[in-house]
Amino acid sequence: ESCGHIRISVPIVRLGDPVTASCIISPNCSKLDQEPQILWRLQDGPEQPGDRQRRLHDGSQESTITLPHVNHTKAFLSCLVPWANSFQVLDQAELQAGYPPASPSNLSCLMYLTTNSLVCQWEPGPETYLPTNFTLKSFRSRADCKYQKDSITDCVPKDRQNTCSIARKHLILYQNMVVWVQAENVLGTSESPKLCLDPMDVVKLEPPVLQVLDMNPELVPRQPGCLWLSWKPWKPGEFIAQECELRYQPQFGGANWTLVSHLPSSEDQFKLCGLHQAPVYTLQIRCIRSPLPGLWSSWSPSLQLRPT
């Protein structure tokens, strides 16, 4: 027969909220003297009597204590009785405190053509100090994202990352879907704002590989301050109609970039002239899905070239 038993109003509370606990010592706890003074100990703090101790009708003793503000995110509350010149711990309860989750924010998604998956990431919001589960939820929709057609299986992030990857088989490309993040812990639930997107409109495009051509002077007369370039679209994105942008600047001296826009995504021979300000120029190229909506690729690794 166990001598003492703790009951707690709510084992998990908001940080700073009060909590009330009671410890009941059964009468037939042989080893104890009749009406022992019940004491409490929070973590390894000092032993303190409860707010009130009374004898219940069945002869057992009950002590009640209220901790006005729980400020440990995790603490152990013990119920003790004096024993010889020490104490005996009769029961122990675990107290937890934290916050309900704030709404996850900055939800954004990218479609990766190499892994064929839609990867979304978000900011979880302030620390809750409690086990909090994040789930990426989504459903398929028609053009306007108003009506839910059929829901997609929840995406549960791996070991507490704030990112989740929806596999290709759950996606209908070229159709809109609604995506959002739900955060949940014992104190509450919250949701991020909803995103309405077609995975193909958020493809993570990689830039082409920019190459310089070594033109045969007999065939192509040398022109000072010019460069012959060629580029091919990034292979996995080849089927996407794209438009590209070239930028160049003298290698040193920090002059601004000069931009050449509306270039095709594939070019076998492109002549770039007017490069008279410096012996060596830095060049980069990037592309975007066009005319359909899309995201700019990053700039290609810069190329240092010496015009003719």
Binding site: L173, Y174, M200, F239, I240, A241, L292
Partner: peptide, 10 residues
């Protein structure tokens, strides 16, 4: 039309 053409190429 543009989406369909892209899907055909894909």
């Amino acid at each position: 039309l543009l989406k369909s053409l892209e899907q055909v190429r894909k």
